[in-house]
Design a protein around this nucleic acid. Sequence first.
DNA 1: CGCGACGTTGATTTGCCTCAACGATTGTGG
DNA 2: CCACAATCGTTGAGGCAAATCAACGTCGCG
Lengths: 202, 202
Amino acid sequence: MDLSVAHDKLIKYITDRVHLNATEIEVIKEKFHLRKLSKKDYFVQTGSTNFQQGFVVSGALRVYYTDPKGNEHVMYFAFSDWWVGDLAGFHFNEAATLSVQALDESYILEVSKEDIEDMYIKVPALERLFRIMAQRTLAVLQKRFLLTISAHAEERYKELLQRHPGIEQLVAQHQIASYLGILPESLSRMKKKLYVSSPNKK
Amino acid sequence: MDLSVAHDKLIKYITDRVHLNATEIEVIKEKFHLRKLSKKDYFVQTGSTNFQQGFVVSGALRVYYTDPKGNEHVMYFAFSDWWVGDLAGFHFNEAATLSVQALDESYILEVSKEDIEDMYIKVPALERLFRIMAQRTLAVLQKRFLLTISAHAEERYKELLQRHPGIEQLVAQHQIASYLGILPESLSRMKKKLYVSSPNKK
DNA sequence: CGCGACGTTGATTTGCCTCAACGATTGTGG
DNA sequence: CCACAATCGTTGAGGCAAATCAACGTCGCG
């Protein structure tokens, strides 16, 4: 993965959403640094106070929470063109409660909170971009929250498959169970039940 | 409740967070319209396509979701200085999936999506304010989501009491149960259990 | 006053967890 | 490159938190 190719991908992502002039593009390129993660490497770990955000250029990652009992809960999976980081920690300057780990070799354009604040001044369009992104992410999280409290695991599983076809080829089953908020054993039993009662096989 | 008092409250809220000049203040005052809600009146109802947001000047409201089975789930309660509206519908221009209902007589400064978009141009500081608000709301919702999937109802109940002391005097018990994601019967049993095992009474 | 909304209590059910065991696959160090 | 270990998915037995269904007393209010 080449730095300029990564930068071009980021600039395309941004200019698809807001207008930038040539100077602004240069400012942005200076601030985002390419980082390679091997499988199982961490981009952010619980307790970190680095406050960075990352734009995923390629690869696959999981963003998860480790609760006080030590159980891990997947918040979301991230692929090309997604953003990763601990938003709560980032916003409140608190130690990260989330971790971000590569599920495969991944390339990420990393930016520090300081540099983002600096860019808000030098590139006002980013203020707009990040407002829109925050509002959209908020709307998406709200939907996920409402589904989680109103529907059983089986319904949430079907919704996931519908919203993200092919996810089962990309991430392991126990990661999907974690995303759904159930144990791997429960997902295994659920799939068996769905398969037996409605055998859409061969 | 007087319009100019309400406007002053809003302007104080905003200028506590970002800088405004006199002209900008006038633009904002023109866009926010005062609305009185009696107890049980709705500010937003499921299916609405008005895309308005509201700044709560006084009173108390509940923001809730009605699932396909007809069960209501309280997203949050709103009091003075909070914002209410269906953020998902607002952002995606979809019919509202949330409802906002007054629990007591309330006064709200209402603004349409159109006028907000207009203000982003005339008052750039609002772009920043709404970015910050969206990011903070997102961080708060993330914490709520993570607590919901990782902790039992009893722990969530204690967290609510700690974060919002006095909530039990402001809203009915079945509303609190709905916020916690459990049935009124379950909350009743839980309180009984907590009371018996740890009688902090007289 | 009378009705409806609210909170409580009881009996039973259920969705998912916990703990345990066991093949199958994957990965790795010698 | 193979042998062994670790990880993963599956299956079983039993348990628990909260839902469901039902009944009933109390209170506030039209």
